[in-house]
Simulated scan of single mutants.
Amino acid sequence: MTDTAGMPSPANLALSRKEDFKAFAEAPRRIRPEHLTMAQIAALSLAAKAEYDLLRREWHANLGPMRTPQLSELHEDLWDIVDSNLQDGDKAKGAVALDAFPGLGKTTSVLAFLQEFHRREIAERGQLTAQGHERLPVCRVGLTGNTGMKDLNRSMLEFFGHPGRNRGTTAQLGQRALDCMLSCEVRLLALDDLHFLKWQRTNGIEVSNHLKWIANEFPVTLLMIGVGLADKGLFSEGETRGDAAMAQTGRRTTRLGMRPFTIETEENRREWRQMLLALEQRVVLAGKHPGMLADDLSDYLFARSTGHIGSLMTLINRGCQRAVRNGQESLSRDLLDGVKNDEASEQARKELEAALETRKLTSRPRVTRKKAA
């Protein structure tokens, strides 16, 4: 499936393949549908209404990434590390491990960074290398629970579409992957879902050692993304005992994290409000009004998402889909009460809701509370 320009549809991309990742990285910014009033929507023909609703369905399903403080902090750290990794090929480059709980926007934030990095490298160095090869600044690989050294090498070759990806020894596949990265001048290798590995089994230790080999031999910055990587032994090279401080991986790897939104301090509450205001601006509903999210639903949305941006975006997306479908064209507590969210948020919401409803907690900054009073 392709769009009118002959490019792959954004909804039909596999980012573990170079053509699709390049299409994602170089895609133009999505255009927000026009904001129509209820009267204007009522005046549309059936065909025009169907087209308008389709545009809004796609828009609301792709509201992010949001430039949150968490995303900005992560990107600043990543730029520091990547830009400092301009050592010559005889020197090992520092690696990065993004280790954080689910639902905090790790993959979304990293993909936004990879997109920016790809665009910067192409703008500065051109589409082709000096040898005439296609320049691919980023190689992104997703891992599975049974990944071993050979599988990892094969996955890297799969990204490049190498014809020899399905045959050869582990060492041969690794050398082919190295050749691809050298030819395409890859500068950033992102390994997503690293927590799927069985770190306490033999293949986990082998992969940990294999990651050291990649960091030593490949002229790339290795970016690893996962959940509980420290607990799984990444920094102690797969071992639960011993002198982890002496582990080479731990010495060469910078561990980064992402924090959820909280409402414990005034600054935290201001961050939450700014997030809701920015999200409110992106929503395309005829009945939208200023403060629909940031004033009317602030406490409710915090309780439903527990401060996890992934859960918040899911709830807003599904709420907007329902509001368009049933003609309500706005978000309210009554509407959102009928919208299901992820299980982790649903399990945690009751205690938060009770505290917010009894005013033991509030998500609203002091200034907005005074205005409301």
Results as ranks from 00 to 15, higher is better:
Asp296Ser: 13
Ile316Lys: 04
Leu285Ile: 10
Leu293Glu: 02
Gln281Lys: 13
Ser305Ile: 06
Glu266Met: 10
Met292Lys: 10
Arg255Cys: 04
Pro290Gly: 07
Lys288Tyr: 02
Leu276Asp: 02
Trp272Gln: 08
Asn268Trp: 02
Ser305Asp: 01
Ala286Lys: 07
Ala294Cys: 05
Asp295Trp: 06
Arg259Gln: 15
Met258Glu: 07
Ala294His: 05
Ser305Met: 07
Arg259Pro: 00
Leu256Glu: 12
Val284Ser: 02
Arg270Met: 02
Asp296Lys: 11
Asp295Ala: 09
His289Thr: 08
Phe261Met: 15
Arg270Asn: 02
Arg259Asp: 12
Ile263Ser: 06
Leu301Lys: 07
Arg273Ile: 01
His289Gly: 02
Asp296His: 14
Ala286Asn: 02
Glu267Met: 14
Thr265His: 06
Gly291Thr: 15
Leu256Gln: 06
Lys288Pro: 00
Asp299Cys: 04
Glu271Val: 08
Glu267Asn: 13
Ser305Cys: 10
Gln274His: 10
Asn268Asp: 13
Arg273Trp: 01
Arg255Glu: 09
Asp295Ser: 08
Ala286Cys: 04
Ala294Trp: 00
Leu301Arg: 04
Glu267Ile: 15
Arg270Asp: 01
Glu264Arg: 13
Leu315Ser: 08
Leu297Val: 03
Phe261Ala: 07
Ala278Ser: 15
Glu271Thr: 13
Gly257Gln: 11
Arg259His: 13
Arg282Pro: 00
Trp272Cys: 10
Thr265Met: 09
Val283Gly: 06
Lys288Asn: 03
Gly291Val: 07
Gly287Ala: 07
Leu315Pro: 00
Thr306Phe: 06
Gly291Pro: 02
Ser311Lys: 01
Ser298Thr: 01
Asp295Phe: 02
Leu312Val: 14
Glu264Tyr: 04
Ala286Gly: 03
Gly287Thr: 12
Pro290Val: 04
Gly310Gln: 07
Phe302Tyr: 15
Glu266Ser: 15
Thr262Ala: 15
Phe261Arg: 09
Leu312Thr: 10
Lys288Thr: 07
Trp272Asp: 10
Arg273Met: 01
Met313Leu: 14
His308Ala: 13
Arg273Glu: 02
Leu279Trp: 01
Leu285Arg: 14
Arg259Ser: 15
Leu277His: 13
Arg259Lys: 14
Phe261Ile: 03
Arg255Trp: 05
Leu256Asp: 09
Met313Gln: 06
Glu271Cys: 08
Ile263His: 03
